[in-house]
Amino acid sequence: MSKFKKDKSKSQPGVSTASLPDIVFMLLFFFMVTTTMKEVTKQVEVRPVKASESQKIRKKSLVDYIYVGALLDKSKGNAYAIQLDDQLYPDERGIQSWKTEQLEKRSQQERGDVVTSLKIDKKARMGVVSKIKEELRDVNALKINYSANKDIRPTY
């Protein structure tokens, strides 16, 4: 029996940390692959809607974002605002000039494929959404995407 007894007097060797960089690099690559760069700092609260038919946008480089939601900075009140890049607008009037500017950044061939992704709070009213859509139609930016998180398919 004593054959298996360990010699208690010997000190335990320290855990080797040689593989720690590898582990951390692995984590790093995982995050680099699965995440995307932040487009802007959100200044409005957007509680996303859910939809079972939600699909990924194919070309990420050809997407512009419009955010609609209540202001995160509660000291400015509870009103809904539209955020375009880092600018906040109380109504839809800033959209046309912003969108035209965005389209001009792209080459002629790409312009028709640019998608405007609407990230809108679920409790927003359709009045503001309709107005945004009208503005986009005015500048002939017709492809839109109602941003929605993937939901499980209902059974009914």
Binding site: T35, T36, M37, Q55, I144, Y146
Partner: peptide, 24 residues
């Protein structure tokens, strides 16, 4: 590097319901 990426990136993927608005 890891912490830098954690801070500057977001997890949410771009997905949604696509639509094409009618021409004016």
């Amino acid at each position: 590097l890891l912490i830098f990426f954690l801070v500057t990136t977001t997890m949410d993927v771009d997905q949604g319901i696509s639509a094409v608005l009618p021409q004016k």
